[in-house]
Write a protein that binds this DNA or RNA. Structure first.
Length: 439
RNA sequence: CGGGGCAUAGCGCAGUCUGGUAGCGCACCUGCUUUGGGAGCAGGGGGUCGCAGGUUCGAAUCCUGCUGCCCCGACCA
């Protein structure tokens, strides 16, 4: 993409409404536009990040055996009356009345809708296990939206729903999501720590929040250092096999948020093992049994031929929140530092003297060659001063900067800079291409 | 929903106390010179001062009401 033909409205100064660093940087890097409290447009640069995160989530959901669907943003109130949640949910639910005076809501989640799908089609345990997920905009009329996309009133969420015959198979479904989440967040360059979470009226120990460590996180977290070094399950993980040893390994070390912190248990750890930090919740998984299937009549026949309510779980990932969370976890004074896996472009190509025929030709050639090789490149071909280009490229945080100017070219040299470390290499133009193809 | 703050050009701000023709920096447009860490000079465009009432000869400024946004708290992917 040529910057001169792109839409990247970067700002030198921070709009005063933004307090938290990820919000400031998203505004300055031209990723989003706020229209009202908690309501944003995603501009091209932000949208690319959102799409990359979404794709990682999708790949890992698919790998675990979940199947993608797309449910509506508007849901009929009657489904929620069946589950009993229409009245319970409270003011956070965004409600409207349509022209026929029917009650409609903008979905804050989709247990009712997915249960309606399930009961419409699935009759037998032989069709299980089943896990249906979607990546869809959700609506919550938050009392107080804040922190940019970290707490919007409209947000993109991956929500998955598992259906199983009984507790044991439901637990296996839970484990699959647990492991999928470990992989998902790891692929985004995040250390996500699963922590025991409250389960509400259902009880049991089957609910975990996944929090990533970031200095500006919303909640205080306490955990064992062991959790930082545990191996992430590989691509070859057998999701049809028994995953309970992995889950056991990840749930054995101490980990709790502020609210559930047990100071005595934490202090029982060797001091060098204790981590007290800040965290951002990016995922939450639950097993809730027959809470929805029972009142909504989602039953299946077991091996004995008798119908019984299906056992369910739900599993959320805050996709749009992750954009903010990743920035919270990866930035410096100059701007964003994208992990390679979610970077909107892999390389920022800087033409230090746009308009100089020699430099223009060199840049164009490299731009074409990298692009043809499948590398995503944002080519800064604008006629700005070098300093402005460096500052802007640091701000938007692409993993690699390829810097080409007249002085270097006289020596047949270009410079490759790694955004995260600031490390620079001087290479020939061919050498730079070879180097980038290798990473 | 309680507490606090803010609202003047695209962004950041001054001007409001003490009423008298709306300003600065950045950004933007034109020209020239520049180009290795947010360039220089010259010229130029852009604002019903959040909205509605009121006071006054005259309101960004004083009064009343409203709206929007931000922060802290309670609540949450």
């Amino acid at each position: 993409m040529r910057l001169s033909r792109y839409f990247l409205p970067t700002l030198r100064e921070t709009p005063k409404e933004a307090e938290i660093v990820s919000h400031r940087l998203m505004l300055r890097a031209g990723m989003i536009r706020q229209h009202a409290a908690g309501i944003y447009s995603w501009l091209p640069f932000g949208l690319r990040v959102l799409a990359r995160i979404e794709e990682i989530v999708r790949e890992e959901q698919n790998r675990s055996g979940a199947v993608e669907i797309l449910m509506p943003t508007m849901q009929p109130a009657d489904l929620w009356r069946e589950s009993g949640r229409y009245d319970d949910y409270g003011k956070e639910m965004l409600r409207i009345v349509d022209r026929h005076k029917r009650d409609i809501l903008f979905g804050p989640t989709a247990e009712e809708v997915v249960t309606d799908i399930f009961r419409g089609f699935v009759r037998s345990y032989r069709d299980l296990p089943l896990n249906l997920y979607n990546i869809q905009w959700k609506f919550r009329d938050e009392v107080r939206p804040r922190f940019g996309v970290m707490r919007g009133r409209e947000f993109l969420m991956k929500d998955a729903y598992s259906f199983d015959l009984d507790y044991d198979t439901a637990r296996a479904a839970y484990n699959r999501m647990f492991v999928a989440y470990l992989r998902t967040f790891d692929r985004m360059g995040l250390k996500a720590i699963p922590m025991q979470a409250a389960t509400g009226p259902i009880g049991g120990d089957l609910s975990h929040e996944f929090l990533i460590l970031a200095q500006t996180g919303e909640s205080g977290v306490f955990c064992s250092r062991k959790l930082l070094d545990l191996p992430i399950p590989g691509e070859d993980t057998d999701f049809r096999g028994d995953l309970s040893p992995i889950v056991a390994a990840w749930t054995e070390p101490y980990a709790a948020t502020e609210e559930k912190h047990d100071a005595a248990a934490f202090e029982a750890l060797p001091e060098a093992d204790r981590i007290a930090a800040r965290g951002i919740e990016v995922g939450h998984i639950f097993y809730f049994g027959t809470k929805y299937s029972q009142p909504m009549g989602a039953s299946i026949a077991g091996p004995d031929g008798a119908d019984r309510p299906v056992h369910m779980g739900s599993y959320g990932i805050g996709v749009s929140r992750l954009v903010g969370a990743i920035i919270e976890a990866g930035h410096d004074d100059a701007g964003i530092v994208w992990p390679d896996a979610v970077a909107p472009f892999q390389v920022g190509l800087i033409n230090l003297k746009a308009g100089d025929p020699v430099v223009d030709v060199a840049c164009e050639t490299i731009y074409e060659r990298l692009t043809k090789a499948g590398i995503t490149v944002l080519y800064d071909d604008r006629d700005d001063s070098a300093g402005a280009k460096f500052a802007r490229m640091d701000l938007i945080g692409l993993p690699w900067q390829l810097i080409i100017g007249p002085k270097g070219l006289q020596r047949h040299e270009v410079e490759l800079k790694r955004r995260a470390t600031g490390a620079r290499e001087t290479l020939t133009p061919d050498g730079a291409i070879t180097r980038l193809l290798a990473v």
